[in-house]
Each structure stands twice: as C-alpha cells, then as structure tokens.
Simulated assay, not measured.
Amino acid sequence: MRIVILSLIALALTACASVRKLDAANDVHALLIAIRDDDQAAFDAHVDRAALKQEIEARLVAEGRKDERLGGLAAILAPALADLAGETLVQPSVFRGVAEYYGYTRETKIPGPLAISQALKPLPDGRICATRKQDGPCLLIFTKGPDDRWRLSGFEGDIKELRLKG
C-alpha cells in the first residue's frame, strides 16, 4: 500500500511539473514570436528587465573580479554598465542570436507550446529554464510574475552571446 501511495504522489508531482511547463511554454512561444518578428512591445511584455539587469550586473562584477587589476573598478562600473546593457542588449534583435542558438531563425517555423514544453525544465525554486536539448544545461530562465505571465528573467549562456547585430 505504501508503494502505491508513493507512486501516486510521484505521479501527481510529475503532472504538476508538466502543467507548469506547458503554462510557461505559452509565454516562451510568445517571446520567440516577438523575437522573430522584432516586436518590441510583445518582447517587453515577456521580459523582466529589472531581473536581467541585476543578473548582468552580478556577472560583470564576477568577470571583473577574475582579473585582480580590475576587481574594484568592475564593482564600481558594473551598475552603470548593467543599466546600459539593460537598455541596449535586452532587445529582440540581440536575443535573435540566442534564438538562433536554439535553431530558430527568421525562416524557421516556431514550434507550438506543446513542443516547446519538452525543452523546459522546472527548477526547485519555481522558475522554469529553457534548454537546447532535453537534460541539457539551462540557457534562459523564466519566472512567473504576479500577473501569471512567465517572463524571461535570467540568461545562463555566455554573456558574449548578447551583442548588438551590426
């Protein structure tokens, strides 16, 4: 009897994770469409700029600290650089390069939410991450906001992937 109860609990938890992934996949799909179509308003609706700025700042400081000569300077400059990065790098055209890493070009048909949900992984803290392949490392992190919309809130990829297209 104990095994049956544990199995039912495990099944319920798996179902909750799947529902959460599918819920997030709808917003990830909308973000991919906004990136593909260079739709700034739709992109902004699916991005948590404050969270991304905070993460970029922390990563800039961490990178600066790797070089002992720049550690203190990086800590001083990181907030201004993160603010600048938040305004210039958090744009559909910049994230198009990240989408291309996933295999989504302007010519690629964006898969539906059900297919996208297969590349999403629930994190222990309630967030969802997008991976390039099942069980791969996280690249994009999504957090559910108070309005029940999942927003891009973190970028785990190489910071050098975020660059303006020239």
Rank of each mutant, 00 (worst) to 15 (best):
I35E: 02
L140G: 02
W150F: 10
I3P: 04
A45L: 15
A34S: 09
A42V: 05
G97T: 13
G97D: 09
V98S: 04
L120Y: 07
I128R: 09
L84F: 09
R151A: 02
K160Q: 06
Y104S: 03
S153F: 13
E107S: 08
L73T: 04
K133P: 00
F95C: 11
A15L: 12
L60S: 01
K144P: 03
K165D: 00
M1I: 11
A85L: 13
E107T: 07
A15N: 07
D125T: 08
A10L: 15
L32S: 11
A12D: 01
R49S: 13
Q118S: 07
A62H: 08
D135T: 09
E161F: 10
A12C: 10
L60G: 00
L11A: 12
L8Q: 07
M1E: 14
A58I: 01
D44H: 12
V61A: 07
L73G: 01
G112C: 08
G97E: 08
K66E: 00
F142E: 14
E57K: 13
V47L: 15
I9G: 00
L162F: 03
I76C: 00
D23G: 01
A75P: 02
L139Q: 07
R106T: 09
D148S: 13
I35P: 01
T131K: 14
F155G: 03
F142M: 14
E107F: 06
A62I: 02
G112H: 08
K121W: 11
I116L: 11
E55W: 00
G97M: 14
D67R: 12
E55G: 12
C16G: 08
L6E: 05
A58P: 00
L73Q: 03
A17M: 05
L6M: 09
P113I: 08
Y102W: 12
I33C: 03
G136V: 14
Q134M: 14
A45S: 09
D147Q: 10
D158Y: 03
A58E: 07
L120K: 03
T14L: 14
L123G: 06
V28E: 10
P137D: 13
S7R: 12
L22S: 04
L13Y: 04
V94P: 02
R96K: 15
A17C: 05
K21D: 03
Q54H: 10
G126F: 06
V61I: 12
K66W: 04
L8H: 01
A115P: 01
E156V: 08
P92K: 08
E87G: 10
S93P: 00
P92W: 10
L162H: 01
G126N: 04
K109T: 11
D148Q: 13
C129A: 10
L84A: 15
D38I: 06
R65M: 03
F95T: 12
S117V: 12
R69T: 11
K160Y: 02
Q54L: 09
I9M: 08
Q40I: 09
V90N: 01
L120W: 10
A25W: 01
A12S: 11
L22T: 05
V94C: 04
G97H: 15
N26S: 05
D38S: 11
T131W: 01
L32R: 02
I9S: 01
G136Y: 04
T105S: 11
L11T: 05
D158A: 07
L162P: 00
